[in-house]
Amino acid sequence: MSGSLIIQQPGNSVVTDLGRFRGPRFGLPVNGALDQFSARAANILAANADNAPLLEITALDFRMQASTDLLIAVTGAPLTLTVGGRECPQWEPVSVRAGETVAVRRITGGLRSYLAVHGSVEAPALLGSCAPDTVIGFGLRLSEGTELTTSRSVGPIRQPYFDLPLFRLGLTRPEFSSRAVIDVTDGPDVEEFGDTAELLFNTEYTVSARSNHIGLRLGGALPERQSSAEVLSRGVPVGAIEVPSREELLVLHRGRGVTAGYPVLAVVTSRSLDTLAQARPGHTIIFRKTTVPEATAKHRAAIRELENLRSRVSTIFALLGIGKDPGWPELIPAAGS
């Protein structure tokens, strides 16, 4: 049975996925969830494929109403989640009954949260992805009254002990701090900056309000390129750190233009791009040098953690009958209760 929900207060929210990986060869940025770990975790907790369409809610309060029974999971920046007025845990599956309102309020400490619905939500795709692309005007930005359809509805899971949470899957949550340490590897053009490249590691940078999904602009002491020769446009990776002006450092994120003619000083690691996705204007950024093998190892450790989560979720959900036959799973009260 399919399910549905209606957006009541969109705040700043879109339907996205992990990105348009076929985009860059056509000159389109990859885009997709800026905090990939949180997005994957939300989908895993909702027993979806990692890359399933889900909601990315940025900074502002959000509210939706379930038209059918749903199972959801909310991850990302710390916030207050209520379902039908009851406060519910983040980073755990949450059962929602038809007619109940799901509210996400007070996103603090970070910037972006992710809301996945079991059975995912339907959204138009371009080159195999629903990720919004603001430059070409593609994607599903949510507004009041938007109705989203999910491929499945999940009967309410009843908790016989009122004060205990339904699930305790125990994923280690990322840390959220107003002073973020960001790992970077040397960029392919680091030598063009001579000794000034070291400034990157000796400076505390401040996130500017002009930052967005295309890139973060950081104020602070700027490394300076030692030559002024024109660079032919070339592909730049997500995470590239450039110094395009004398005002700010630019750290490209998933919405970045695929090609540019600025030298790449350093590249933020995959793990730290998730951290940057949560940096708010005014937050402090400190860069730390690492190597590609170390960055790869850290990324894989995070993926392993998500894989462990997936196997715990699938065990529990199989016991509850979620994702299999539609039914009305009910926890059996312990003897004597």
């Binding site: 860059p24 070339r234 592909g235 695929v258 090609t259 960055a295 790869t296």
Partner: peptide, 29 residues
């Protein structure tokens, strides 16, 4: 693109350079 390899997302060729993007969870530099 034609050969395809696990974890390789694609390549962005420009004038004299090519950016090859991949998933470090599946493959490595």
């Amino acid at each position: 693109e034609t050969a395809g390899a696990d974890g390789v997302h694609g390549a962005v060729p420009t004038y004299d350079s090519l950016l090859v993007e991949f998933d470090p969870g599946v493959t490595s530099a």
